[in-house]
Computed example of a mutant assay.
Amino acid sequence: MTNHVTLFAPPPDDHSKAPIENVLDLTPVVDLGPDVFTNTRPLWHPPGARGIYGGAAIAQSLSAAMRTVPADFAVHSMHCYFVLAGDSELPILYHVERVRDGRSFVTRTVQARQRGRPIFTTTLSFSRVGSGGEKTLNHATPMPDVKIPDTLPGTVRALSDAGGGPFESKKAGIINRTHNPEDKRVRRFVRARGRVSEEGGFQAHLSALAYITDSFFIGTVSRVHDIPRFSSPAELEQLLKALKNPSDLDDEDIRKALQELKEEEASDLRRRLEGALSNASTQDHKEVGMMVSLDHSIYFHNPRAFRADEWMFFEMESPWAGEGRGLAVQKIWSLNGTLIATCTQEGVVRLKQDKPPLSKI
């Protein structure tokens, strides 16, 4: 064992696998028990975030649980709680508990721990493939009629570390842009970079999807209110001066300032920033003071019917916000129209106040 950000010295990346497989790789910790795992490689801490990227904890917990489940079972739901911010300077231990093994369903819980304390916890349910019988009820929300990714302008990599990140996205617009916040739909296409290995099986695609679901998600709440994530008009002015061309988005300073908005095209960023500046003095100015995920649920509808390294269509909405929290709902389709998953996430979404808040997290 070594005194690094991982429990064991990380091996070189396996180039026969997709980048996301290397990011999510786990190492068994046999000295602590048969169902204990740790992150093989360092975890990404997004610029300006309180801790590690939450999708890593979600995906690695799923991966750890799947290692304890027979291959003829597939996950159909997982319910997660973010307890404490994960420290990217410390390894994470994933403790899997085998709650129940039935003929049709298997249940697991996973606790992700640092310094002996849980930072993340999830309960997962797996069902045996084909256990529903020959006769079943079937329906699914159809995929909206949207342009295929190749006709959309501009491919950009999602928020990531210096290596460019394990997935990429293309925005697909906002539906009902002029309507009430609860009526708006934020759309984009997302896929894992590279090619997920055959060795990883359908489990690797599920873990990759779980990782991606936490990106762009809680930010839907502020986005449907057209609230940019900047602290002051002065900072907006500084960013406008820096945005001279799209290549400026690779600047380290700009990356830190834009945070989640780096995936937007430069022209769209410039338009939104200019609009925020012009409206700042004439309208009730709102600024996000804190945005933190609290819980995250994924319902996997067709766990073997998609590839995470092929374009998937995401549609996000926010049916409710209040009391300093917001709820976001996300539907995900493969391009053949198969509804892959439905996700929900609630988070703290607090605006900057003229007076101090009554409580702090």
Score class of each variant (00 low, 15 high):
333 W>Y: 05
6 T>L: 05
46 P>S: 00
319 P>R: 09
28 P>V: 03
243 L>P: 06
223 R>N: 13
303 P>H: 06
162 A>S: 13
283 Q>M: 10
358 L>E: 15
209 L>R: 09
31 D>E: 15
136 T>F: 09
280 A>V: 03
146 V>Y: 05
44 W>H: 15
303 P>C: 04
160 S>K: 09
156 V>M: 15
217 F>Q: 02
319 P>T: 04
12 P>W: 02
152 L>S: 04
286 K>L: 15
358 L>C: 07
34 P>I: 06
97 E>A: 13
349 V>L: 08
317 E>K: 13
115 R>V: 05
342 T>W: 07
8 F>W: 12
224 V>G: 10
18 A>P: 02
128 R>A: 08
38 T>H: 05
245 N>I: 00
133 G>C: 00
76 H>Y: 13
134 E>W: 01
158 A>C: 14
4 H>D: 14
262 K>T: 13
9 A>W: 07
126 F>W: 01
34 P>C: 03
107 T>V: 09
155 T>F: 12
21 E>Q: 05
67 R>K: 10
84 L>S: 11
160 S>D: 04
353 Q>R: 14
75 V>Q: 02
217 F>K: 04
294 L>R: 04
176 N>Q: 10
166 P>V: 05
284 D>P: 01
356 P>E: 10
206 L>A: 14
192 A>R: 07
252 E>A: 15
350 R>T: 03
161 D>V: 02
189 F>Y: 15
346 E>K: 03
71 A>E: 15
68 T>D: 05
106 V>N: 09
354 D>F: 11
263 E>H: 12
143 M>Q: 05
141 T>S: 14
173 G>W: 07
30 V>L: 12
64 A>W: 07
123 T>H: 10
88 S>C: 12
202 F>W: 13
297 S>G: 12
19 P>E: 00
114 Q>H: 00
71 A>V: 07
312 M>V: 00
24 L>Y: 01
279 N>L: 10
195 R>W: 03
67 R>S: 08
344 T>D: 02
282 T>D: 04
268 D>H: 14
171 K>Y: 12
146 V>F: 07
258 L>V: 11
208 A>F: 07
135 K>H: 15
86 G>H: 04
40 T>I: 00
175 I>Y: 11
182 E>H: 11
151 T>A: 13
341 A>V: 02
60 Q>T: 06
60 Q>R: 13
39 N>V: 01
155 T>C: 10
256 K>A: 12
287 E>C: 08
227 I>F: 11
292 V>S: 11
122 T>L: 00
245 N>C: 07
332 I>L: 05
9 A>N: 10
229 R>I: 08
358 L>A: 15
169 S>E: 11
264 E>G: 03
345 Q>D: 02
71 A>T: 09
338 T>R: 11
297 S>M: 12
124 L>M: 15
246 P>S: 03
61 S>L: 01
258 L>E: 03
307 R>N: 11
241 K>R: 13
128 R>V: 01
181 P>V: 09
28 P>C: 03
310 E>D: 14
2 T>F: 10
288 V>Q: 07
7 L>G: 02
196 V>E: 00
344 T>Y: 04
84 L>D: 08
88 S>D: 12
17 K>E: 00
195 R>F: 03
35 D>V: 03
211 Y>A: 00
346 E>Q: 15
233 P>K: 10
287 E>I: 06
358 L>Q: 12
294 L>E: 07
264 E>F: 14
241 K>H: 10
241 K>D: 09
154 G>F: 05
298 I>M: 08
256 K>L: 07
194 G>L: 02
130 G>L: 02
190 V>F: 11
138 N>Y: 12
